[in-house]
């Protein structure tokens, strides 16, 4: 199962990310994970949240450019080499990771790694076949 992530377009300006967190706060949305990709000109703020629909509405109501996209959420043990094993599996299957970020999940006490691969479905199949634990929206609702 792939997980839905929310991406928000932001200009490089003071307070841009704060505008996002402020909109989400008002909507009572909890941010599970956040990552910011920045270039010289603009940034993309990527979010994993508990209440996705509320978050989308809140952001759009604040005139923000928002889209949803699918990412792989991989649960890994908090031990050396755990992420390495997953990335080796993907690399062996010739799958490229475009970006990644992580957070500690209270569910299993382990880490959750968000992965965006060039071929998401293939990544999903590869990781499932190798016995890795993948998380769904339900897993991060808590």
């Amino acid at each position: 199962m792939l997980l839905k992530q929310i991406s928000v377009f932001v200009e490089n300006r003071r307070g841009a990310v704060r505008d996002i967190t402020s909109a989400l706060l008002e909507a009572g949305v909890n941010i599970r994970a956040i990552s910011i990709a920045d270039t010289a000109e603009f940034g993309i703020v990527r979010l994993i949240v508990d209440k996705r629909k509320d978050a989308l509405n809140a952001l759009r109501n604040n005139n923000m450019t928002v889209i949803e996209s699918d990412v792989v959420a991989l649960a890994v043990d908090d031990t050396p080499g755990a992420l390495h094993a997953a990335l080796t599996a993907l690399s062996d299957s010739d799958i490229m990771v475009e970006y990644s970020y992580g957070f500690v999940s209270p569910i299993n006490g382990g880490a959750t790694i968000i992965l965006k691969c060039d071929d998401q479905e293939k990544a999903l199949g590869c990781l499932t076949a190798k016995g890795f634990t993948l998380l769904t929206a339900d897993d991060i609702k808590f």
Partner: peptide, 18 residues
């Protein structure tokens, strides 16, 4: 101004648009 139709999650594609 960027619209949602044009916005993509990928930095590369946004740079290609500009």
């Amino acid at each position: 101004e960027l619209t949602e139709e044009t916005f993509t999650d990928e930095v590369r594609k946004l740079e290609a648009i500009s």
